[in-house]
Amino acid sequence: MDEQRFLEYVQSGGQVETTDRMPDDYRSKLVKFIEMHGNSELMGVLPEREWILRAPTLQRKLALTAKVQDEVGHSQLIYRVVEDLGKPREQCLADLISGKSKFHNVFHYPTKTWGDVGVIAWLVDAAAIISQKALLKCSYAPYARIMKKICWEESFHILHGRDVVLTMMNGTDEQRELVQEALNRWWGPLMQFHGNPISKEDDPMYIWRIKSQGNEEARQQFLDGYVPQIWELGLTVPDPKLRKSDDGVWEYSEPDWDELKHVVTGHGPKTQERLEFRRKFLEQEAWVRSVVLAEAA
């Protein structure tokens, strides 16, 4: 199949398997996109794992450990898909810690209070599930298939996050303040999360039908699904321009696209510290992987 026919095939809803022939450009775009997803799951555990040790009840401790465990499991599944496309996991990890490959903007920021734990599990995971649900229709079938399990698990994370937030909103003034303060800090990164409003016809990931929706479509879906819930809980969204216009489209202040670019290129407030932390443990426990590999050989 030549590139043009392949393009027509995926654009008309066709799906591709690992052993099918595929254009080099398609394969390299797939690797880049899926690897970044795997990196994001793996780096996403670092801000949350700190709070496993501070969880305020046994139930929260169990739920948060299980949630973070899910994210590690997702990165394992996702890196396997990348591996089948020709890039081994060790190489993905090496590129991650050297800063050569990227991970999502939201995982470059610090967490400051238990309010962050609720806001991340509820709203960051909500933003992520919108992107991930759209990947159920990805033209690369093995990736689309694992997304079913991932979306199923993410939907539990959202319930856990909403419950953490709801419990705090029903608590003391001080607890409500913790949630509001966390929301104020996370709103900017959340609005940047789905990317700049590039037209989907110009987005190579859409052209190859790796993604099935445009960035702005995803953001509108997020706002439509979650802003009414945020308001219902008595929280204020820190954007005076945010409103739903009569034609049903959400209007909002322009997100800071310079900040997004700066952060994902390795200059976020926690980027280097988290990469350094991951590098430290990868190096420190390298001997364990050697023992396991020697046993497998």
Partner: peptide, 16 residues
């Protein structure tokens, strides 16, 4: 304390 930083992803899930 090992959740998220165990020596391999498989072990991470197991130890969690």
């Amino acid at each position: 304390e090992w959740t998220g930083i165990a020596p391999s992803l498989e072990e991470d899930v197991a130890f969690s």
